[in-house]
Amino acid sequence: MNAALRQSLGRKPCGSLRVAVAGETCVLRCSGALWLPAHGALVAADLHLEKGSAFAMRGQMLPPYDSRATLDRLEAEIQALDPATVVLLGDSFHDTKAIPRMATEDRARLNDLSAGRDWLWLEGNHDRQALALDAETVARLPGRIVGDLALGRLRMTHEPAARSAEDDRHGEVAGHLHPCARVAAYGRGVRRACFVTDGSRMILPAFGAFTGGLNVRDPAIAGLFAAPPMAAALGRDRVHPLDWTRLN
């Protein structure tokens, strides 16, 4: 873990972890969401709503409650923080036809959660087309879809990419890769969804209930950082900072 990042670490009373990315205070929540207190913004990545129903359509039966569980978690964060802005970092829907499969109650909850807030859907693999189809209906979902978004010194984007010297003047917050950390504990391997950051770039864990994960040591993630980053693993009631050398 680099020295600057280590100095920025701080523990919040709720078990969240505070770090600095490009000088911006970032609070890593136990839910896997990111809280930016200076901007009143709650950020979450990769909800993959209606993944269960997509699998069911292909004959693989999963419990059809993933959207409900994901929205339960999102609602809890909104109630706790009362954000002015909610930023969803793309892949909020599992496929382009996910929205018509959503239960009426889940759509109503999104309407309630978005009331009085700036609700932003960043464009991932399916979001723009899914929301465009939904916009043609009477009961369309709230909010607006955007590409990349700047909040202070942070650039919000769906998928992290190679950065230039110019990019390094700003921090990056991305999703898409579903990072997970694996450590040896109590004589066995423990695998947890995690944030990963080096103080200039941060990749968020997937927020959705049915999402898998990619080991942070995989080149697709590790190769995005010039120096070994820190993984911050989600525990039951706290976020655990992990040194790169501890990861399997």
Results as ranks from 00 to 15, higher is better:
127 D>S: 10
33 A>L: 12
117 R>D: 06
244 W>M: 04
19 V>C: 10
161 A>K: 10
109 R>I: 06
195 F>Y: 15
81 L>W: 13
109 R>P: 01
51 K>Q: 12
23 G>D: 15
206 A>K: 05
40 G>F: 07
70 T>D: 13
95 D>S: 14
198 D>Q: 00
184 A>Y: 05
222 A>E: 07
58 R>D: 07
30 C>N: 07
186 Y>E: 13
149 L>T: 04
179 P>N: 01
70 T>R: 10
167 D>W: 03
94 H>K: 04
222 A>P: 01
140 R>M: 07
232 A>R: 00
73 R>N: 07
66 D>Y: 15
115 A>H: 14
98 A>T: 08
5 L>Q: 01
75 E>V: 02
168 D>W: 05
241 P>K: 01
202 M>G: 05
146 V>Y: 02
149 L>G: 02
103 A>F: 11
145 I>M: 13
107 R>F: 05
187 G>I: 04
108 A>Q: 15
28 L>E: 02
157 T>D: 02
191 R>A: 12
206 A>C: 04
38 A>C: 03
144 R>E: 01
107 R>C: 10
184 A>D: 04
13 P>L: 09
17 L>H: 08
7 Q>Y: 00
212 G>K: 09
3 A>Y: 08
129 Q>M: 09
138 V>F: 03
156 M>T: 04
88 L>R: 09
240 H>A: 00
85 T>L: 13
